[in-house]
């Protein structure tokens, strides 16, 4: 919760992903409980029949079908034209949304750095598995859209550096409306896929409107709530004027044992309400501390949730 004393921003991909982590990430691939149709040929088996080596089924020929797919052996035996259908291998769309507001830039370890690293790791997995990776940063923008930047439809390992430079270039500042940002994201996304939203979900105007807009449209939405250890156990005392980093709103508190107790109760209740909201809308919520190692997040938490396999 407290502003990070001194932060070293990542500059290259090596700052985000070290080789050890990459080695651990390499066997992973994105997954979704739902199978979506891709746009491009990918490495994912699709429900669609398409061009691949894997046979799926036969169906009677109708005029207009590509005669190249006629199973001549069956025609020879049955004297009926049948088409050979193959399983289509398609790509999966991965959309990583990170909260780039000032409130992310706090905590020890820094929440935003954690989000950057997590996004990079997910993006790496997505890119190496030939999925379409889109990264969107929500943040303070003069036009009020709430979208600071977006990197669309990256595919393939080659685009790894593009993704890394985009992530390294993000600067958390200001505040935004989660509702309008979510609206913009929902309108702009194409196809179907997996969406991971990294944020602390502390929005003054509420998280409900925003999440309601993100849900549906063929996306499997995972909310990752990142909290710093200081937000969970505030190490503060005395008479304080607490100033909100985003909107400079202030709250005067005299920190006392009952107050801390109430704060923790409120935090738990907030997280609970967020989880409940997500569950009711087929979204999944994960609350992680910013001091969680990235490999634990990827290999343990996300795998358990079925985001990666």
């Amino acid at each position: 919760m407290l502003k990070t004393a001194s932060i070293i921003r990542p500059k290259t991909i090596d700052d985000l992903l070290n080789t050890e982590l990459i080695a651990k990430l390499d066997p992973l691939d994105l997954s979704s409980k739902r199978v979506f149709f891709g746009k491009l040929k990918g490495e994912r088996r699709s429900k669609k029949r398409g061009q691949s080596v894997e046979f799926a089924d036969h169906r009677p020929y109708t005029s207009g079908d590509d005669i190249r797919h006629i199973d001549w052996n069956i025609y020879a035996r049955l004297d009926t034209l049948f088409l050979k259908l193959f399983l289509e291998e398609e790509d999966l769309s991965l959309h990583v949304v990170i909260d780039c507001s000032a409130s992310s830039d706090c905590g020890e370890p820094n929440k935003f750095l954690f989000m950057q690293k997590a996004a990079a790791a997910l993006g790496y997995i997505g890119l190496v598995n030939l999925n379409r990776v889109t990264i969107t940063a929500m943040g303070d923008r003069d036009d009020g859209s709430g979208i600071v930047g977006s990197l669309r439809d990256l595919r393939g390992r080659r685009r790894l550096h593009d993704m890394a430079s985009f992530l390294c270039g993000l600067e958390p500042k200001g505040s935004f409306s989660f509702r309008s940002a979510a609206e913009r994201i929902a309108l702009s996304r194409r196809g179907k896929g997996v969406m991971l939203v990294f944020s602390d979900f502390f929005y003054k105007d509420g998280f409900e409107e925003g999440l309601r807009r993100l849900v549906g449209h063929g996306y499997d939405v995972f909310c990752v709530q990142v909290l710093s250890p200081q937000e969970i156990e505030p190490p503060i005392t005395g008479d304080l004027r607490l100033r909100d980093m985003e909107d400079s709103d202030s709250a005067e508190v005299t920190v006392s044992a009952p107050l801390l107790k109430r704060y923790k109760a409120n935090l738990a209740a907030y997280c609970k309400s967020l989880e409940q909201f997500c569950v009711q809308r087929s979204m999944q919520l994960m609350t992680v501390r910013s001091d969680t190692p990235i490999d634990t997040l990827m290999l343990d938490y996300l795998r358990r949730k079925g985001v990666v396999k």
């Binding site: 407290l2 706090c106 502390f202 003054k204 503060i236 107050l259 109430r262």
Partner: peptide, 18 residues
């Protein structure tokens, strides 16, 4: 009171608490 200023990520929960 002359309170000490402290920046926090959000005052949302604090305000609720106090």
């Amino acid at each position: 009171l002359r309170r000490r200023d402290l920046e926090v990520s959000t005052t949302l929960l604090w305000k609720k608490a106090v």
